[in-house]
Write a protein that binds this DNA or RNA. Structure first.
Lengths: 325, 325
DNA sequence: TTGTAAGCGTTATCAC
DNA sequence: GTGATAACGCTTACAA
C-alpha cells in the first residue's frame, strides 16, 4: 500500500494525497474521497520514505548503561511518557556498561537514524567527549552534570544535606556509609552534603565507611561501621539499597530504629518502603527527571531558546527510620 | 555524507561502494580505497534509504503496558540484550495500560516501521485479536499464553505448586494470599497450583484471602488472613510484593519466620531479598524470558521452523522464610 | 486547488 | 569486477 495506490483509488494525484496527509490545500470533495480510500485500506505512510525525504525520523535514541535498576527504569519510563505522547518513538540502546557500545550507538544514531539523543548516566570519558563533540544532533545528558552539554541532573549535595539534618535529630554520633568518591554523583557529592550539614550543625562525624552499591554491601558496611564505632547512633547512606542492607543488620542485632539509631538515605526506590521501618529518604523523583530530559530535548529539536542546565528537585520523604522533632 | 560522496572520493561508482558495504565483488585495490574514504569521513549508510529500498529496518517494536515494574524492566532488558547483540534496534512503545494505544502502535509498527513485534503482558481482548489478525509482521507475545499466536510464557501453575510444597514442610495449616482470579497468570493459575499441591499432599487449605498487587495490600491481606484463621502456619502468596507486605506484618506482630509461620511466593524480584528473612520463591527468571522472546522473534523473522509456544522454566529459590527438611 | 517531475540515499538488475 | 540506471515511497517546487 502506498500513496500512489491511494491516489488511484480516490482519483487524484500522489501530491494531493500527500498534501492531504500533511495538511496542505485540498478541496473538500477530494478530502472526503481520499479519506475514504485511506480508511478502507488502512493505509499508513511509509516511515522510511518519509524520513528519507524529510530527514525527520520522529525517533529519539535513548542510550542506557543497563536496564536493571529501579532508577534507570523510572527515568526511561519518564522519557517514554513524554516522547510517546508527542508522537516520537523511543529507540532504546542498552550498552551493558560497555563504553565502546555507547560510542558506537552515539555515532550510529547520529547518522539520521534519530532526531535527538538522550544519554543516560555514564561517566563521560575523554573518548566520550571526542565522540560527543562530533554529534550533530541535539543531545541531552540525563542523571549527570556536564559543563559542555545540555543536561538534567540531581541535586545530590543538598539531598544528602537535608537527609543528614533529619537523621541527626535527637542523636549525637553521626556515621555514614558512603559510595566511593570516584563516583561523583553518588559518592562524592552526597558525602560532601553529609559533611556540610555536620559542619553547619557543629557536629563531628563519628565514623565513615565505604561500601559497594548492593544491598549486601550495605549490610556488611553497617557491620563494619558499628564494629569500629559502636557509639554511632545515626547512619546516612549514599543510596537506598545500601540503607536497606544496613537496616537489616541493625534489626538482626536488635537495635531499635529510630530510638537507638536512625537511618536515612538518598534515592527513593521501592526498597525504602520494603524495609522495616520504612526509610526516611531524599526521593530523587527519577520519573520526573526523565520527563524533564525528554522535554529539554524536544525544545532543542524545535530550536527553542531554553536553559540547558536543568537541576531536578528532590522530595524529602520522612518515614519511621528517623525520629520526629 | 552519502554513498555517492564516498564513490567520488575513492574514484569508483556508487554500486561498487554499495557492493563493498554488502560484501559483494570488489577488487582488493578498490576495497582499500573505499575503506580509506569511509574511515576518513566516518560515513554511515542512511538508515532510511536502506530500509526504503530493502524493506528491512533492523528495528523491533516492543509494546509494553508500563515500565514501572521489576518484572517488565527485566523482560525488556532481556529483549534488548539479544536484539542489540544481533544488530537490531529496540523501539519501545509504552502504552500506560491504554488499550487504544496498544492497538495504535500495533498497526503503526506493522507498516514497515519494524521487522517484528513483541507484545508484552496484556490481556488479549477481542479488539486485540481483530488487530493482531491483521498484522503481517512476525509477532511474539511475552508473559502470556495464547493459542493463536507465538508466545513465551511462565509455568505459573507448577511454580505455585512447588513453592506451596516447600512452605508446608513442617506445618499443617496452609493459607494463601491470592491475586484475583480474573488475572489468569497471577491469580487463577497460581491459586490452582496451590490447591493442586495441597490435594496431592492430602492437606486442606485453612484459609484463603484475596489481595491487590501492592506491598500494602499484602500487609492488609495477611492481617485479615490471620484474624480469620489464627491457626494458619504457612502462607503462600501469589506475588513477591504481596509476600513482602505479609512478612512485614508477621514481623510486627512478633511471629517467628519460619518457626511459627512460613512464607513463600512466586516472582523473584529484588524485594524477596530485602525482606527479613529472605523469601523462598519461585523465580520466574524474567530476564531469560525476555531473551527467549527475542530469540523466538528472530527465528520467525528468519522464517526458521521453530516451536512457537515456549514455556520458560522457573527456579525454586530457597531462603530463610521456609523451614529446611 | 491540482498535477508534473525531481530528488532523498540506497540496492538490484543488467550490460559491459 | 564494474558502472549505468531504475526503483523503493514519499515531499516539494513549480507550473498549470
Amino acid at each position: 500500500m502506498s500513496i500512489k495506490k491511494i491516489a488511484e483509488l480516490s482519483g487524484v494525484s500522489k501530491s494531493t494525497v500527500s498534501r492531504y496527509l500533511n495538511g496542505g490545500y485540498v478541496s473538500e470533495s477530494n478530502k472526503s474521497k481520499i479519506k475514504a480510500a485511506i480508511e478502507k485500506t488502512g493505509f499508513i505512510p511509509s516511515f522510511a520514505a518519509q524520513s528519507l525525504r524529510t530527514k525527520v525520523t520522529k525517533q529519539i535514541g535513548v542510550i542506557i548503561p543497563k536496564l536493571n535498576s529501579y532508577s534507570i527504569s523510572k527515568m526511561v519510563a519518564g522519557i517514554t511518557e513524554i516522547l510517546n505522547k508527542e508522537g516520537y518513538y523511543v529507540v532504546l540502546a542498552n550498552t551493558e556498561n560497555n563504553e565502546d557500545e555507547e560510542l558506537k550507538y552515539l555515532s550510529l544514531f547520529d547518522e539520521n537514524h534519530v532526531d535527538g539523543i538522550i544519554l543516560l548516566g555514564t561517566v563521560i570519558t575523554d573518548k566520550h567527549k571526542e565522540e560527543l563533540n562530533k554529534i550533530k544532533l541535539p543531545l541531552v545528558l540525563l542523571a549527570q552534570y556536564h559543563d559542555d552539554y545540555p543536561c538534567v541532573y540531581f541535586d545530590n549535595l543538598n539531598a544528602a544535606k537535608v537527609v543528614t539534618k533529619k537523621i541527626i535529630k535527637g542523636h549525637s554520633n553521626p556515621g555514614m556509609i558512603s559510595a566511593r568518591i570516584d563516583d561523583i554523583s553518588t559518592g562524592k557529592l552526597r558525602q560532601m552534603g553529609y559533611f556540610e550539614c555536620l559542619k553547619e550543625e557543629n557536629i563531628e562525624s563519628t565514623g565513615l565507611v565505604y561500601s559497594g552499591f548492593g544491598f549486601e554491601d550495605g549490610y556488611e558496611a553497617c557491620k563494619r561501621l558499628l564494629k569500629e564505632h559502636p557509639e554511632v547512633d545515626s547512619i546516612f547512606c549514599s543510596t537506598d539499597h545500601m540503607a536497606c542492607g544496613a537496616v537489616l543488620y541493625l534489626n538482626q542485632i536488635g537495635k531499635k530504629i529510630p530510638e537507638d539509631i536512625s537511618v536515612g538515605c538518598v534515592g527513593g526506590s521501592e526498597s525504602c518502603l520494603f524495609s522495616n521501618p520504612r526509610l526516611t529518604n531524599a526521593n530523587l523523583q527519577y520519573f520526573t527527571s526523565g520527563n524533564k530530559a525528554a522535554e529539554l530535548l524536544l525544545s532543542l529539536i524545535k530550536k527553542e531558546n531554553v536553559n540547558t542546565k536543568v537541576m531536578t528537585e528532590f522530595k524529602l520523604d520522612i518515614n519511621g527510620s528517623t525520629k520526629n522533632d
